[in-house]
């Protein structure tokens, strides 16, 4: 019965036939190597230590938001509000840095988690598709950011010390990169070694079966979106601290970039396949592409076009068409 849905897919079949059998992550790794080679040949500065640090710096932020996004996508949904959450969080952090000091970080993270929880609640309880829920809530979060401050907020110089949690160095390594590693480890453990992580995979793979097997699908879905909000909040505080400022459009580009990282890493939009490790590779590919294109002087916006095409190709390859009877 299920096979009926596959229908004809001539173009795809041909592409798939050739590359069948390899796990999705191998394409992403191949892509990573390919781009590194291209940029290393194309530019003398690409492989320098300084440039590697630059890549690491931006990768850490993208990693945080993508680590959250991948949980939303693993359930078969999508989170288009990560940009709004990042922006809101950045504004909250900068606004409260002076009175609260270090506690401003906790507050900002709590705001992001609450925002993600709200997404999850609307998506699972009111049964509204996640892309609409998060498209709408992205507007709400940005509005709140605007209401807190229309103008960009800068970190007061008295609080620069607090920002060292992100900007400082520990044992000669930049804290932001250590944070990136910690965040990766945290989300990796959540996905692989906790019941919630396993249930998210189950839900994405087969929702009906999960319910019949006693998984609380509302709870799991809500947790997935909360994790996405958490990831976006982490990215928001990291980016704001890095820039010493926060403003209501700060996170916008990260919507595209986080989704692109996830799908380029080979996580299927249908959910249930791929995950945190895939996304790590996807984030590396994205960071290398962005940086390399900057170095060899390709326009920022040409990069956006390139990523758009890359996303379409990645989805075309990884999307599991047998799971849906009708592709809408």
């Amino acid at each position: 019965m299920q096979k009926d849905g596959i229908g004809k897919q001539p173009a795809i079949k041909r592409i798939k036939g050739r590359v069948a059998g390899l796990p999705a992550i191998s394409y992403a790794l191949g892509m990573l190597v390919l781009f590194i080679v291209i940029f290393a040949v194309g530019s003398a500065t690409f492989l320098t230590r300084y440039n590697m640090l630059t890549i690491g710096n931006s990768a850490a932020i993208l990693l945080a938001v993508a680590m959250g996004q991948v949980f939303a996508i693993l359930t078969g949904g999508i989170d288009l509000s990560v940009g709004g959450i990042m922006s809101l969080v950045s504004v909250v952090l900068m606004k409260t840095l002076e009175p609260l000091g270090f506690w401003a970080y906790w507050l900002s993270l709590a705001v992001g988690i609450a925002a993600g929880f709200l997404n999850g609640l609307i998506n699972s309880r009111f049964r509204i598709p996640s892309f609409i829920t998060t498209l709408g809530s992205n507007g709400i979060f940005m509005s709140i950011a605007y209401m807190i401050s229309i103008k960009p907020l800068s970190a007061p110089s008295s609080s620069f010390g607090v920002l060292d949690i992100v900007n400082g160095t520990t044992l000669g390594i930049r804290n932001i990169m250590l944070l990136g590693v910690l965040i990766f480890m945290l989300f990796f453990v959540i996905q692989r070694y906790t019941i919630t992580g396993r249930n998210i995979m189950l839900l994405g793979s087969n929702e009906k079966m999960s319910w019949l097997s006693g998984v609380d699908i509302f709870k799991v879905r809500t947790i997935a979106f909360t994790l996405s909000g958490f990831g976006a909040a982490l990215a928001g505080v990291m980016l704001a601290s890095n820039l010493y400022s926060g403003y209501p459009t700060l996170g916008t580009v990260y919507i595209l970039n986080s989704i692109a990282s996830v799908v380029i890493g080979g996580t299927a939009m249908t959910g249930g396949a791929g995950g945190v490790l895939n996304t790590l590779v996807g984030v590396m590919v994205m960071s290398v592409i962005n940086n390399g294109m900057n170095i060899i002087g390709i326009d920022v916006y040409a990069q956006q076009s390139f990523l758009g095409v890359l996303v379409i190709i990645a989805v075309a390859i990884s999307f599991d068409r047998s799971k849906l009877s009708v592709i809408k």
Partner: peptide, 11 residues
């Protein structure tokens, strides 16, 4: 190519 329209159009 049988891709879900919301992601292909986003791309």
């Amino acid at each position: 190519l049988r891709m879900p329209s919301f992601i292909s159009t986003l791309g």
